[in-house]
Computed example of a mutant assay.
Amino acid sequence: MSAQTPTQTKSGTTSKAGRNLPAAIGVGLVLGAVLIVGLFFLPWLLVVFAALAAAVGTWEVVQGINHKRDMGIPMIPAVGVALVMPFFAYVGGGQWLIFAVVASMILLMFWRLTGPKDGMIMSVMGSIFAVSWVPFMIALALLLFREPHGAGAIFLILVMAIGNDTWGYIAGVLWGKHPMAPRISPKKTWEGFAGSMFGSMAVGLIASLVMPTVPWWFGILLAVVLVITATTGDLAESMVKREIGIKDMSNILPGHGGVMDRLDSIVFCLAIGSVMFTLFNGIL
């Protein structure tokens, strides 16, 4: 995203957002409003929103892989697991999340054992990949959300993830010349990456002045880690989409494409950011 021109997607073609900008802005505002209300006023709204995002994102991943690669990933249990895993994390914490992960793997393998023998290994591995990518990473963020200052921490992670794309986009458009991974995402450049890094570090420093629970050094450290994480997540989804030969995960969000087209880097940032806050909890 950091290397895109204003009217091009990562693959270099005209973006849906560019063709339907009012719809894209409207959807973005609605999603942002739901996040803010859920984070700071109605916690269960956020949990339900996260569970739905996990379920739809998993559906997109599974249907994309099955349609293009015919891996036979069982849709019903995969989406069901994605829907309940965030609830387990929020209600029961880490122990319940571990139980949910183990139970999910057993369910997916048992479900596949009742099907055809051919392709069984690839089907199980694909199921584990889909569940690990979307619902598990979102569930990790809900573990952080349970903590006393969890809402502010999640908000900071989201701001940094979105800011990473914004600063990278600006730097990529103005100065982008050297592609990072031309075979995966031709429009992403090292100049855009540098813009993301400096912009996110500035956001982290400002956040440390606004949030008394975040020291200045942690704000900068978090920014560095999340820029690397967001870039990795962005490239990972681009790699998956190129592998299965699709441009967008779905058309469910007007002007945006699919849920995973918006969550590509965010889910990685939520997971790694939550781990960072947990690791440094004793000294923050």
Rank of each mutant, 00 (worst) to 15 (best):
F41N: 12
A230R: 07
A82S: 10
I246L: 09
L142E: 02
I283W: 14
L83P: 06
T9K: 05
G28W: 00
T278D: 08
A33T: 13
Q4H: 01
Q4R: 04
A151M: 00
L29R: 09
G199R: 07
A153K: 13
R262C: 05
L29Y: 06
A230L: 03
L113Y: 05
G115M: 13
V210W: 15
T166R: 09
F280H: 14
S11I: 08
I36L: 14
L52I: 08
V227A: 02
G192Q: 00
S200A: 08
V227E: 03
P182G: 06
L83Y: 01
F129K: 10
F268A: 01
M105H: 01
F110C: 10
F110H: 14
V214N: 14
S127H: 09
S185C: 09
T13Q: 09
M109S: 15
K177V: 02
V27A: 13
G92E: 07
A23S: 09
V91E: 00
I228T: 15
V227F: 03
G28N: 04
Q95K: 08
W133H: 03
Y169W: 12
A271T: 04
T189S: 12
I244N: 10
L42M: 11
A139C: 11
V79Y: 02
I272Y: 03
G192Y: 00
I106Y: 08
L45V: 02
V240Y: 09
R146S: 01
K177S: 11
A202D: 15
I220K: 01
T231S: 10
Q63G: 06
D118A: 12
T278M: 05
I98G: 04
L143S: 05
V227T: 03
Y169K: 14
